[in-house]
Write a protein that binds this DNA or RNA. Structure first.
Lengths: 218, 218
DNA sequence: TCAAGCCTTTTTGTATACAAGAATGACAAT
DNA sequence: ATTGTCATTCTTGTATACAAAAAGGCTTGA
């Protein structure tokens, strides 16, 4: 499956918004972007439409598109939905998971463990993502899996930041163990509650998230 | 907020796909559509991109866009996700709903009831939709509300068909009562289970849905 | 008869040109 | 000084033109 320019531009723009090159509320000028990427306005407009659909920018007809970073409230809401979606995955997976599926889950968890010891947050993030992706898959619902991946992708930059908190990685691992154990026992409710705790932003995590958010808000 | 041509075309195309004017797997020709709507290819392409994002069509680079009607499996998966999302709404609403919110829920339910007696499926569908929308709102999570509305919209044509089944409207009303009662008692788990039963496609509902689907599949 | 390669046609993707609405700034009136 | 209006400029939305890739059909060779 080949990629068109518009696709690449959409990805690049996504990155530029995530890393703060374009601040919240900023207008994305079509001709400027066209020059920056050395293309005409057409593929730029297509890329902007994509970002509109994924919620990174908001489009006001005949005004332009503006970067829309989620505020603290919206972010908490998104994390709450992510937690609940993953809880559903865990509950379904607890009864639907196959033996191979459970083995791959164990494997992914082992890889996380080995990374924790190396204190490598970036690699841990990737392996953690894999662990969760397997859970989505094992829900046995491909549509649910897609929705989870979509939201996971959207929350990616914020989750990354959270891992930087001291001791978070080992805590995260402990939570993984609880999830795996519940699924091994085919205890859907316990698995759901475990992953809900793992993903949701409460207590200390709440403060850390808001604190990290502040710089972007100013 | 004004609308551009591309927006109208997207809406029209959505309708044309829902009502079966464009069959599953059919290629949507850009120039044909441009002629049909008396516009150039540009707004047509924008509209098609929108439909791609909402999942009604699939776009294969340098090949074109093709209508993609969900098959039985995907449909069941979508209904399962809808049921779980609404269950989350109900559970959250049970503890977060305000007095005014609960009153509006009661009001929406009363309106449904009066329509059932008139045996008007179309109006019932609209009022039922309102009832559910209030529940989404009362989850206290605006992001969750949006996600629910999005999926509700996507499943709309299939839900409509289900209501046509004899006796379904009164059964639906009984389920509403159970939901309202659980929320009144602030019993989140009971409310979640009640709405899960209400939305999910099982037993008789499963057969009816598949049966209605057949004609479109051939 | 079938397959491979080439050429034509069709269709998508991108660039450019044009139209229409919105923002900006100057000027006049109160 | 402030506000309202008009004109200019800029930006978005749409149309058209062009490029490149894919589809379809033809010929040619076995």
């Amino acid at each position: 499956m080949e990629r068109r320019r518009a696709d690449c531009i959409a990805d690049d723009l996504e990155g530029l918004i995530f890393d703060g090159t374009f601040a919240d509320g900023e207008r994305l000028d079509e001709v400027q972007l066209a020059n920056r990427f050395s293309v005409s306005r057409t593929p730029v407009r297509e890329a902007l439409q994509r970002l509109t659909q994924s919620g990174l920018v908001v489009q006001i007809p005949r005004r332009g598109v503006f970067v829309r970073q989620p505020g603290p409230v919206e972010l908490l809401e998104m994390f709450e939905v992510m937690a609940e979606l993953e809880a559903v995955c865990a509950r379904l997976a607890a009864s639907r998971i196959s033996d191979e599926g459970f083995n791959s889950l164990l494997d992914a968890n082992r890889r996380c463990k080995s990374v924790v010891e190396a204190q490598d947050t970036d690699t841990y993030y990737r392996e953690n993502e894999r662990f969760h992706a397997i859970l989505y898959r094992q829900s046995g619902n491909a549509f649910l899996e897609q929705e989870c991946l979509r939201l996971q992708r959207r929350l990616q930059p914020f989750r990354r930041v959270q891992l930087r908190v001291r001791g978070r990685m080992s805590q995260s691992m402990a939570e993984h163990e609880a999830i795996v154990s519940a699924i091994e026992d085919a205890d859907g409710e316990r698995a759901a509650e475990a992953i809900r705790q793992h993903v949701s932003v409460q207590g200390e995590k709440f403060h850390h998230l808001i604190a990290r958010l502040k710089p972007a808000a100013e």
